[in-house]
Design a protein around this nucleic acid. Structure first.
Length: 499
RNA sequence: GGCGCUAUCGUCUAUCGGUUAGGACAGCCGCCUUUCACGUGGCAAAGACGGGUUCGAUUCCCGUUAGCGCUACCA
């Protein structure tokens, strides 16, 4: 049987290096066995999914060098490859489960469910749907449905016994059915949840090996249960460890740059990033050179060498690898081409020139005026940030609130940036012009520069986040408590275009 | 709180019962060099803890501890 793997990102944010890591492993495994690798978009969360995010993820994975045999952009015999376009398929399968008595309609309100869980937790029991709606007879269920009560469809789960399954790397894992919740399979909006859509699609797309992040281990029983309810042969499964911050917590953008676009704008070469990620999945042995092309990684890939402990994303090692690629793998012409593509594309140069021209007297002013556009973190000191109307405490708040707002923006745009920063000023009860200065310094390194919103737009969200975090490190990173309190300031500002 | 996963130098890892526990990044000391970088030679650095099993455990089993994950009509 031909090996078929997939990566199934959810388009709810910027492309994440964790997605690249999982994608790379799936790619290497499939190709190592002469199989196929596909890409599926899991956009069943209508509220958070955006087409822009989907495009960004596809672009970023392409940039990294991954190619898929089937996917929303390249098509294939098992499409559509976007879950939002497969509603009818899920509906049919849900009906099948309902008809067979493997699932049931649940009319419980969020409030009741909350209270139930609080009580269960207090009693030291695993949170699990208590089965109230399961006790209704067919007549009662039909009556509620007819009266227009919204409902979800839940999975029926065995009352006792244990679910035993094999993880390709971890071996046998046992989880008691009592600890497995009666998962919602179809939301009241009629769309499936991840669990249902994922299982149905993996089966229909003939996925033979599901290789995914460790966060899915505890929901594996639900998935396996679905396979058995449908009478399908489940795929082999394996869970990859989660990438970590240096403090060992799950890699998060609060503590570290996690966006692929950040690494791109920092000037890391895609082959170096892929190489680095590949090393975290399959390390080189003893004396072997750690510089490995994608082809080499495919060739030497071995599942049983994938680590189980969450590897720390060590930027220093990435730096070293990238340095070697820059020095050893690019001839002068290729180097020039890379630099051009990195930050000197004609469109970008044009745009920057238009912003810079009115602000200089000599062409030689250009270097210092624009240096920040071609740099990573700026060498800031507290004194650089001071000098405006805000004291340190206010600047820390301003930067932190900006981080909140900028992260919450659906799309990165000048208009959005402006709205976000004005909101921050309002939340702090300051005039925007007083707040502007520290932002100029944090972002551009100087209180006078090209327009702030353009600068931020040009830099990109990930780099802006990095600069703001850099400024916060200089002034003192807010504690979790401070962050939570400050966030309330933002909540107090009404949404909308006003400001 | 409940359930699960994990545990070798600071970091990424090798070891598949017997090794002076190996390599790489970072660090430190040299060499090379008009600076820096690169390159190169070397140094330092690890089996979480406690029980078993065994002639012998880093390796197998159990417990403890710690870290992480899950605990949603998000994925």
């Amino acid at each position: 049987m031909k090996v078929r793997t997939r990566i199934a990102p959810s388009p709810t944010g910027d492309p994440h290096v964790g997605t690249a890591y999982v994608g790379l492993v799936n790619y290497c495994f499939a190709k190592h066995h002469g199989g196929e690798f596909l890409l599926r978009i899991e956009d069943t969360d209508q509220v958070r999914s955006t087409p822009q995010s989907e495009q960004a993820i596809l672009d970023a994975l392409h940039w990294l060098g991954l190619r898929w045999d089937e996917g929303p952009d390249v098509g294939g015999p098992h499409g559509p490859y976007r879950q939002s376009e497969r509603s009818a398929i899920y509906r049919k399968h849900v009906d099948e489960l309902l008809a067979a008595g493997h699932a049931f309609k649940c009319f419980c309100t969020a409030l009741r469910l909350d209270e139930m869980r609080v009580a269960q937790r207090a009693a030291g029991k695993p949170p699990r749907y208590d089965g109230l709606c399961l006790s209704y007879g067919a007549a009662e269920t039909a009556r509620r449905e007819a009266s227009g009560e919204p409902y979800v469809v839940r999975l029926k789960v065995p009352e006792n016994g244990v679910c035993t399954f094999d993880d390709l790397r971890r071996g046998t894992i046992e989880i008691e059915w009592q600890g497995v919740d009666m998962q919602v399979l179809m939301k009241s909006d009629g769309l499936p949840t991840y669990h249902l859509a994922n299982v149905v699609d993996d089966h229909l797309m003939e996925i033979t090996h599901v290789i995914r992040g460790e966060e899915w281990v505890s929901s594996a029983p639900k998935h396996l249960l679905l396979y058995s309810y449908f009478g399908w042969q489940p795929p082999s499964i394996m869970h990859l460890p989660l990438l970590r911050n240096p403090d060992k917590s799950k890699l998060s953008k609060r503590k570290n740059p996690t966006g692929m676009l950040f690494y791109k704008s920092m000037g890391y070469l895609p082959e170096a990033l892929a190489n680095f990620l590949g090393l975290l999945a399959n390390s080189a042995h003893d004396g072997q050179d750690e510089i490995l092309s994608l082809e080499q990684m495919v060739e030497r890939f071995a599942l049983d060498h994938v680590p189980l402990g969450g590897p720390v994303f060590d930027v220093q090692k990435l730096d070293w690898l990238n340095g070697r690629y820059v020095r050893e793998r690019l001839d002068p012409a290729a180097f020039v081409a890379r630099v051009r593509d990195w930050a000197f594309t004609p469109e970008r140069v044009e745009r920057i020139a238009q912003l810079a021209q009115p602000r200089i007297e000599r062409l030689s002013d250009l270097g210092l005026l624009l240096a920040f556009l071609f740099a990573g973190r700026l060498p800031l000191e507290a004194a650089d940030l001071r000098g405006g109307k805000l004291d340190d405490a206010a600047m820390r708040q301003a930067f932190q609130l900006a981080l909140f707002e900028l992260d919450a923006m659906p799309d990165w745009s000048i208009a959005g940036i402006e709205r976000a920063l004005k909101r921050v000023a309002e939340a702090l009860g300051r005039k925007f012009r007083d707040v502007a200065r520290p932002f100029y310094v944090a972002i551009t390194g100087s209180p006078t520069s090209i327009p702030l919103y353009d600068a931020m737009d040009l830099l990109g969200r990930d780099m802006v986040r990095e600069r703001l975090r850099g400024a916060l490190e200089v002034l003192g990173v807010p504690s979790a408590k401070e962050q939570a309190e400050w966030k309330k300031l933002l909540d107090a500002v009404p949404q909308g275009e006003s400001a």
